[in-house]
Amino acid sequence: MAEPFGIVSGAIGIASAFTACIDCFGYIHFGRQFGRDFQTNQLALNCARLRLTRWGESVNIYDDPKLGRQDATAAEIQLAKDALLQILVLFADTKSISQKYKLTATAREDLSVYSTDDMDPKIIVLDNKMRALALQRQKKTQFLKLTSWALYHRSTLKDLLEQIVLLLDEIEKIFPEPHAQVKFVQQEAAEIGKETSDKQSLQLVEDAATGIDSLLQKTVKEVIAGHQYLNITFGGKGLAGDAFSDDWKGGAIGASHKFDGVEVKEGGKGLLGNKYGGKDFFDD
């Protein structure tokens, strides 16, 4: 494996490799060749970074050397580390492509890049929130100190994202932690929904996550649709919707609630909607 950015693979641990990967997402800019599409491309990068940090959080990458699996073998942990190092290689390759392009570009070619000032206000809000959600999971200081680089070709971005997704698929297959992943993605969707009050903004995230983060795409789609309760009968105790424990900090999931054909029989007890903290619904 090539050593990206001068990093010797055996010299850093998996947590440092994880931190370095998160760093790299922040170094990429988009050249003017992308046109206004650069905004949706930025959101796509945010989705990939958010997915990576969700996995790291779910396996407790900074504090658990077994990555959430006490039966994990040294070979499996090494595979996860190699996947993270390969992500760094991908970033290093895109930087190299950018540098070569700048060296061979003619004087008439525009090598300037887009900045936040070029973004639509809605995209800025989404970009800031998704960036913040990812970076708050980066519990170590920045590992890499690099200069930013620009992407000038859509094909380079496409290849980068496709390969990152394949590597994320690989490490999630070895260390899946599905329950934690669902918990964290619901927090993400709730925070994004709270920050952006309109469905159009949420739709932008759903679209950006397509092919990159199916879990985020599915969850945001559910937020847009809201909860629907049809033809429900409560004979005993029943809960329809989500329940949140006292320590839940992510806000509410679901844009709306729709009820039709709900019946609570004598002696029955039902809750339709969300429960936030306090006494548990099933406690008498």
Score class of each variant (00 low, 15 high):
T94L: 05
N231Q: 10
F234Y: 14
G56T: 02
E266Q: 09
L216K: 01
N41R: 15
Q186E: 15
D71G: 02
L157P: 03
D71I: 06
Q39P: 05
E170P: 01
A180Q: 14
A105T: 02
L50E: 05
I14V: 07
S16Y: 06
R69L: 10
H153K: 07
G278I: 03
Q186T: 08
A208Y: 07
F175D: 05
K173P: 00
H257E: 09
E206L: 06
G56E: 02
D23C: 08
D63V: 09
A150E: 12
A2L: 09
L146D: 11
L166K: 07
Q200M: 00
L202M: 14
T219L: 07
R36D: 15
A44D: 09
V182G: 00
Y276C: 09
I12D: 00
F34L: 14
G13M: 05
P65W: 01
S245Q: 03
W55P: 01
Q228Y: 05
L166T: 06
D37R: 14
K269E: 12
L157Y: 02
E172G: 14
R108F: 11
Q203P: 00
L88V: 09
D213E: 06
H29F: 13
D71K: 13
M130H: 01
L230G: 00
T19N: 09
A150L: 08
T116C: 08
Q217C: 14
T210K: 06
H153T: 00
R51L: 15
F282R: 11
N128K: 11
Y27P: 02
K249T: 15
E222R: 15
L43F: 05
D118L: 05
K66N: 13
V125L: 14
K129Q: 13
D207P: 00
S214E: 10
G241S: 04
D64H: 15
S58A: 15
D246V: 01
D127A: 12
Y276R: 13
Y229D: 11
L144I: 04
G6D: 03
S214L: 08
G31T: 01
S214C: 09
A208L: 12
G6T: 00
D23K: 08
K183R: 12
Y152Q: 05
T94K: 13
G6M: 03
Q217A: 15
D23W: 02
E188T: 12
K269T: 12
P121F: 04
N231I: 04
A190L: 06
R36S: 12
L126H: 06
I61N: 07
I77Y: 00
F38I: 02
L160G: 10
K173I: 01
A107K: 10
K95P: 02
T147S: 09
D213Q: 01
N274I: 04
K269H: 14
S201G: 13
F244P: 01
A20H: 03
H257Q: 07
R49V: 02
T53N: 11
S148N: 07
R131P: 01
S58C: 12
S9A: 13
R54S: 15
F34G: 13
L161K: 05
N274V: 06
R36Q: 10
T73M: 03
F38T: 03
G193A: 14
A80T: 12
Q203C: 07
A240E: 12
L43Y: 08
L67W: 13
G31M: 01
A252W: 02
E263D: 13
D93I: 12
T156P: 05
L168N: 14
C24V: 00
S112T: 15
R49E: 10
L45Q: 07
A190Y: 01
